[in-house]
Amino acid sequence: MPHDLFGTAVIAAPMAGGTSTPAFVGAVHRAGGLGFLAAGYKSVAAMQAEIRAARDAGTRFGMNVFVPDPAQLAPSAALLAELAEYRRQLGPDALRYGAELPAFRLDDDDQWQGKIDALLEDPVELVSFAFGLPGPDVVRSLQRAGSAVLATVTTAAEARQAAGQGVDALVVQHASAGGHSAAFLPAPAPFSAASIRQDGTTAELLAEVRSAVGLPLVAAGGVMDAAGLGAVLRAGAAAAQLGTAFLRTDESGARQLHKDALADPHFTRTRLTRAFTGRQARALENDFVRHHPGAPEAYPAIHHLTAPLRAAAAAAGDPERLNLWAGTGWRQAQPGPVAGVVARLLG
């Protein structure tokens, strides 16, 4: 049974960068699911505009916010040297399109405080966080304002820290999920190189987290159909959060180039990569991923550094240098209306 906090077993993941539009989230709501808007990469004003658009349409929704990492906003001399070397390695990619690589941007906290202030002034029903924890003061303030607070975790250790901050529920993200990993604690060996746990299944990770905390859990990673949804619900999830399953839908705001790549037999695997943003993310393996296996851990500096390359690749219709986020179940993603995806999941 879906938890009262969500009212459904199907949650559409917040997919930043233009995929999770108010129209997309509205379609999920009308189909019987719950969608999250994504504040990431947007200005405060743009986030507020999307909230108004969703409300005006009568949509039930949540809002996801990126938590900035202070260490990434004050890089060491060693990391700055790695960034300079990576910028040099990107030279041939820039030359291909006649693009100009920008100067390093090291101060971008994604307008963190402004977004929190806006959500306190004009609360939404659900606020989720990724890439870290907001802090107990922020959690309590949002709750007092009327919002339920969710934290995204990837291990039992992260879950315990999040529970200690008083959040209402957890999104438990397995490494099979597409897009960015929400991991914020170093993983124990042998997974420390990627800082992301990759063994087992989403249901098994869920069971581990369930044994560590007593909060409602949302399972994320690898859920593409009714069988996958049933597996995580039986493992104790209150709902499942899906992103890749919705990417090819009519209402998805993803680029058509991205949608087409998910159906292209040329792409045969996904891989975790820092090449596009400096943060581990799962994407279809294309030339850019293969050619830049050693990108430093420097988010969002690398996100800004590669932005002109990604824009140029999109304009040129070149999927080989675009960030084609995709989970391990990408082959099951289907075109058509959002309502069809939700119906197949719940049917």
Rank of each mutant, 00 (worst) to 15 (best):
D4R: 14
F6C: 13
V10A: 14
G18E: 09
T19D: 02
P22R: 07
A27N: 12
G33T: 07
L34M: 08
L37D: 13
K42F: 01
K42W: 05
S43P: 09
A46C: 07
Q48P: 10
E50D: 15
R52T: 14
F61W: 05
N64M: 04
N64L: 08
F66G: 05
A74E: 15
L79K: 12
L80N: 03
A81H: 00
E82K: 13
L83Y: 04
L90T: 10
L90P: 13
L90C: 12
P92S: 06
D93P: 00
D93K: 02
F104R: 00
L106V: 02
A130N: 12
G135L: 06
S141R: 15
R144S: 11
A157N: 09
Q165H: 14
L170W: 03
V171G: 04
V172I: 05
S176N: 06
F184Y: 09
A187D: 05
A189S: 12
I196Y: 01
I196W: 01
G200S: 12
A207H: 00
R210I: 00
P216C: 11
V218K: 06
D225A: 07
G236S: 08
A239C: 12
D250S: 03
S252Y: 09
R255Y: 14
H258E: 13
L262T: 14
H266P: 00
T268Y: 07
R269V: 12
R271D: 15
E285K: 04
H292Y: 15
P300E: 03
A301T: 11
I302A: 10
H303K: 03
L305T: 01
L305P: 14
P319W: 05
G327K: 00
R331S: 12
V338E: 13
V338K: 09
V341F: 05
A343C: 06
L346G: 04
G347H: 03
G347R: 05
